[in-house]
Write a protein that binds this DNA or RNA. Structure first.
Lengths: 136, 136
DNA sequence: GTAAGTACTATACCCATGTATAGTACTATA
DNA sequence: TATAGTACTATACATGGGTATAGTACTTAC
């Protein structure tokens, strides 16, 4: 399903890089490409919620499912698979009955924290600006 | 098309906030909500490219169109409209013949720079990690 | 009168993402 | 026997974001 290329980035913006002659500002591309890479890895409705959930400790499938209201099993399984492919999350199977599976944010996944914090900081100010009230 | 609520955030995650009893970690929500707000504002395939383009100077519709390969007029018009709604971009119409329209990144839009830089930084390292080579 | 340059809008369609609902395989417990 | 708990998978469907292609309205230049 995910080729080596797709695993780390989408192809659209790789292509952008090869067409620099069409852009006036080279530095523009230098930002666009990595930003697109980052957003691609975080793409979809559930990856950030899952990552945030795992920053508060290792969790099992069922626990994550309970902590993220409205996510379906299918989506959770799919997103965890993608996060594992990108080495942001690791999966450990325990030989219990029934089998339990523990998901952990990898050290690499933890490097996303500054990104998420910056997004949170901006989102927080945006909310203040739009509503003029502080989030409790 | 966009209600007052939708203009600043998606409704899914507003709902999350009201269901805190289902979450084990309250601080989890405190991050999730603003992060979702931020990602909502930046959502879609073209907003970041447009914002990055405008950080290098005010531009007209046609110029932006040329600088972002493959974007269609329809998408560009739509995304610019949304960015304007969120006050990240301002639109100035000049009484020339034919009419020219200049788009500017607002001061508020410029506050996204740290966010975008953090995304770029992470994306850059991600690319290095996945390819083991530095982007030229 | 027709092309060209401006900034769009209209219409129809495609497809990836996400949803809804059910089913699998295993075993312990009542 | 059947229910419950684990972690999923299968199938079908819906939706919305994006694409493709064309058309609008205005005026100047050829």
């Amino acid at each position: 399903m995910y080729s080596t290329i797709l695993r780390y980035s989408n192809s659209e913006f790789i292509m952008l890089e090869t067409h620099t002659e069409e852009r006036t500002h080279g530095s523009c591309n230098k930002m666009l490409l990595p930003v697109s890479d980052a957003l691609y890895v975080l793409s979809g409705k559930w990856k950030i919620p899952i990552i945030i959930a795992l920053t508060f400790g290792n969790k099992r499938f069922g626990q994550i499912s309970k902590e993220i209201p409205k996510i379906t099993d299918r989506m959770l399984a799919k997103e965890l698979r993608e996060l594992e492919l990108n080495q942001l999350v690791s999966r450990k199977v325990y030989d219990t009955i029934p089998v339990t599976v523990e998901y952990t944010l990898t050290d690499y996944g933890a490097t996303l924290q500054p990104v998420i914090e910056e997004l949170a900081k901006w989102g927080f100010h945006h909310r203040e600006r739009m509503f003029g009230e502080t989030q409790k």
